[in-house]
């Protein structure tokens, strides 16, 4: 009924959820039971006269006062959990989050920038300070039971403390257009030492991977895939299939043969040359992609013949 529990907060929310579930079951069985009982027990027979009962003060007080007490109790329970989670503890690790149609970008405390998939240390308070570059988005990590809208021109926060190692799904929960449902990411909680290592040179498996394989990871991690296809389909941006070596025509009328320098420029400063027939929708990635992944991306584009 509920997703995995990633934090103490999640356990608290679930306790209330289950309490409310049984409260629901109790009242539903009461109402449905009475209704169905009445339908059978007081089935119509001709000539029966019904009692003229207009009201009963005691009964009405009971069914007004008891539910009122119950819901006020629920209010305080829910409010307590909400306030606990509302403000991040002062010692939290701070990660900046930028949302843009339809990708998440994370700036880690050391200034490095990651798209989509990041790692965090386990058993640590992690605070996400979020803003949007365009429309409303919403940062939702179901396993942590946290959710908060991400707004343009404003900073909002969520925080959690992952208790167990594991990969936790991040979803956008505020409708933001065409690829709203593809705007997801993952937050992997690992031991602090592994996290530090990851910050320096990426996950261990990168060491043995070929550049185009790394490029494929970057293609998904930085959200290139939301706009650029690799199978020739026309999307928000030009396809990467057969891109390398092709002559591109730009909106200002000039042309260029796609080579490494052009690809580098287009990733760093996409607005400089806009391919004719497309709008400049792409964020600039200058200084945000680790050199290893950058080389990988170029190798990956070269490999897509």
């Amino acid at each position: 009924m509920l997703p995995e529990q990633g934090s103490q907060h999640a356990r608290h929310v679930d306790t209330l959820f289950m309490a409310l579930f049984w409260l629901n079951v109790f009242f539903f069985v009461l109402v449905a039971g009475l209704a169905i009982y009445c339908v059978y027990a007081f089935k119509r027979r001709e000539g029966v006269k019904t009692p003229h009962i207009t009201h009963n003060l005691a009964l009405e007080l009971i069914w007004s006062v008891i539910p009122t007490m119950l819901v006020i109790g629920v209010f305080f329970w829910g409010a307590a959990g909400f306030l606990d989670y509302s403000v991040a503890p002062g010692n939290s690790l701070e990660i900046a989050v930028t949302a843009k149609k339809w990708n998440w970008t994370f700036t880690m405390p050391d200034g490095s920038v990651y798209g989509k998939n990041i790692q965090i240390p386990v058993n640590t308070n992690v605070k996400f300070v979020m803003t949007s570059m365009d429309v409303l988005h919403d940062f939702y990590v179901p396993a942590m039971r946290v959710k908060h809208d991400v707004l343009p021109n404003r900073y909002t926060e969520v925080w959690f403390n992952a208790e167990k190692e594991g990969t936790y799904h991040l979803a956008c929960a505020e409708y933001c257009g065409k690829s709203h449902s593809d705007m997801f990411g993952s937050i992997k909680a690992v031991q602090p030492a592994e996290y530090e290592k990851w910050l320096v040179d990426g996950p261990p498996e990168w060491a043995t991977m070929k550049p185009e394989e790394l490029g494929k990871i970057a293609y998904e991690a930085y959200g290139c895939n939301t706009c650029h296809s690799v199978d020739g389909t026309k999307n928000t941006g030009p396809t990467w299939k057969g891109l390398y070596g092709k002559t591109e025509k730009f909106s200002d009328g000039t042309t260029t043969v796609v080579d490494e320098a052009y690809i580098k420029e287009s990733i760093n400063i996409p607005g400089k040359k806009v391919v004719s027939g497309y709008e400049n929708q792409m964020p600039a990635f200058e200084g945000q992609i680790k050199p290893k992944l950058f080389e990988g991306l170029i190798a990956y584009i070269k490999s897509l013949k």
């Binding site: 959820f17 409260l23 829910g78 606990d84 919403d138 039971r145 505020e174």
Partner: peptide
């Protein structure tokens, strides 16, 4: 009855927009 889950703050945060 299911509205109670959504009126209650901490459970609503999880269930909101789902």
């Amino acid at each position: 009855l299911t509205g109670i889950f959504l009126g209650s703050l901490s459970t609503d945060i999880h269930l909101h927009d789902t």
